Amino acid sequence: MLLDIRRIYVEPAAAALPRGQEVLARFPDAQRVEVDSHHRIPELYGDETNVARWVRIKQGALVLGVKKSLTARPNGRSADFIAPSAANGCAMACAYCYVPRHKGYSNPITVFANIDKIGGYLRRHAGRQGPKPEPNECDRHLWVYDIGENSDCSLDARVSDNVRDLVELFRDLPNAKASFATKHVNRDLLDWDPQGHTRIRFSLMPAADAKLLDIRTTPVAERIAAIDDFVAAGYEVHVNFSPVVVRDGWLADWAELLDQLDAGLGPAAKAQLAAEVIFLTHNRDLHEVNLGWHPKAEELLWRPDLQQGKRSENGFWNVRYRTGAKGGYVAALRDLIAEHTPYCHIRYAF
């Protein structure tokens, strides 16, 4: 079971808002624990002893808070702007996920109840942009806002109506669209009528990698099988080839995945398909955490023989594939994509 909410950590200000009350009503039997801040919950965050309870916490805990800082950060790669989060954290447990680094050793879903303020901010921000002056790799015509940087919106939609509110908001904005990546197929979204103003990016990787790394996610074959339905429902659907993990036989497995994708798509989906290609970046602290609950994953993710270290802007020590060799990996995968899915435009690859 992906979600079995037994305990809700609640900021009083969130519980007083309509969205907070709706979320609490969805889980009437859950224990409620009042907290001063969704950021500071000692039994969830920052305690390495939680590693043994990593998945259990994600399955059974929910946090209800208020988003205090509302900013849309310029991006220019996956989207023009990163929208203020309507949620963060996740009930899934992908072994390479960077989000847990920000809160600690477990990071269940946090829902922000002040969705009206978040939506109002986005409406005003998009209004200030005016028409998009020229095409870019984010989109030819519309400003793109990533609404799911720190969570999986398809899964968030099983907990609250925040994501639906945002999809409906962007549907009515003449100059902007929402975007989010997902590893969870939620067919409830098919009824939301986005009218082309929401882009869903289904993350894909070879099944052998996904079985080991994409813990508690929808199987890759089911993600591919959903693409045509989401296109028919009015979504723009792209794919994220992410993260690309280099290992023995990786290119052969990617070729097989691309053939599966090609066979699973109809003409409408192929006509609008584009991809982001993102090679693995891993983190030393997350590596240590994973050794405590999923060491087999680290045999693929932590490869000192292939990787080099770099201190990130926020002070984390990350590893990525070695300069020079990585360029060859990227070129090889680009060639495979051109061969097996020539209609798939690569928006960027790194």
Rank of each mutant, 00 (worst) to 15 (best):
P84L: 00
L213M: 11
A72P: 02
R187I: 05
Y98L: 03
I346M: 05
P28N: 11
P304F: 05
L62V: 09
F180P: 12
I8T: 08
W192S: 02
Y343I: 11
G76W: 10
H345A: 14
A252P: 04
T217R: 09
A91T: 05
V63L: 12
D4V: 14
H39G: 08
F112W: 09
K117W: 02
E134T: 13
R187L: 06
L122I: 04
A233S: 09
A271M: 01
L173A: 12
V33Y: 05
V99H: 00
N50M: 11
W192V: 12
E288C: 06
N283I: 02
Q307R: 08
L44A: 09
T110R: 06
D165V: 11
D47P: 01
A16Y: 10
A252M: 01
P74R: 02
E48N: 05
H38V: 11
D188N: 12
R171Y: 01
K310T: 15
A207Y: 00
C344A: 02
R6F: 06
V144G: 03
N175C: 04
R19P: 00
F81T: 12
V239D: 08
G104T: 01
R19E: 12
A331I: 00
W54F: 15
A126M: 07
E276Y: 14
V277Q: 04
H125R: 07
D209C: 10
R199D: 07
S78T: 15
A61G: 06
D139L: 13
H38A: 09
R101W: 04
P84W: 06
G104K: 02
D305I: 04
A268L: 15
S85H: 13
L189Q: 04
E236S: 09
I224S: 06
W250E: 01
Y45G: 07
P133C: 13
V66Q: 04
Q195M: 14
P133T: 15
R124E: 15
P206Q: 07
A207N: 01
I346H: 05
Y321L: 06
D152K: 13
V167Q: 07
V10C: 15
C90A: 12
L204P: 10
L301R: 12
K67G: 01
F202T: 03
K117A: 15
R123L: 05
L291P: 11
